[in-house]
Structure formats: structure tokens, C-alpha cells
Amino acid sequence: MAITLKLNGTTHEVEADPGTPLLWVIRDELKLTGTKFGCGVASCGACTVHLDGEPVRSCQTYIEDVEGSEITTIEQMEEDPIGKAVQQAWAELDVVQCGYCQSGQIMSAVGLLRENAKPSAAEIDEYMYGNACRCATYQRIRAGIQRAAEIMEA
């Protein structure tokens, strides 16, 4: 069926059957590859995007449920003040290793800072629980979120 998607401020018409995960429409149809496939079962967070500003796992979000919503991906984060602060913090602290999980980490981090401008380490650990990093960059993710909070405050 034809579906109208609002993604990163642009409207797209895509052909996809109900039940198709948003992840594969973003990656294979719209060719925005910053959003990653890691598990397909909502347990790693690599595919995290924002749906009306809220982080969701796009591998378990079905295309028929997102019509009319505003979808935002990592490619748009440079335009977002919180996204920019997080990216700046990530580069300052060299958070990334292989980098494959980091789009998802950043999308979740932005979601956290949007609802909590100064999260504690425990709050970060709780919010970021679902974003796995097999390279175990967690300590820098935690520091990166706190650094981004500082950048935002300044």
C-alpha cells in the first residue's frame, strides 16, 4: 500500500505492506543508512529514531502506525540544538569505537536530554539501558551525555 511519511521535514510517498518495520523503509527505500540494524527485536537500540520527538526502536515500529507522525533520524541531528550538543560532546570525548551503535546511542541520548536537562549517572544508566554497545563504550556515553548537558547549559 502507498504510505505518506514525514521524515526529517520532508514528505515521502513509499510503497510498503502493513507490518513492514519502519527501519527497512528508512534504510532500503529512503536509503538513509545512518539508522542501523542490529537485532530486529528491539533489544539493542541501534535502529533508534524519533517519532514526534520520542525515541522508538524502528525495527519494531510498523509502517502503518507512523502515518501522520514526524519521524526524525540521525541525519537530522545536526539541525537539532540538543543533537548538536550531543554530537559535539561525542567528538570531544571520542566516544565512538566501531561506531555502529552510535547513531542509536545519540538518538536515545537526545531523547533523554529533552526530558531531563541534567541527568545523573543513575538516570543515564536507566534511560540508556536498551542501547547496547558491543564495543562497550558505555563509560564515555555516560560522560558524553553529561558533557552535552553542560554544553546546553552554557
Partner: peptide, 10 residues
Amino acid sequence: DSVIKGNGKA
């Protein structure tokens, strides 16, 4: 490679 791995371009 920090920047390109943080903005989806890598």
C-alpha cells in the same frame, strides 16, 4: 572518524 560515526555518514 569520530564525527562521521556520530552523524550517520560513516
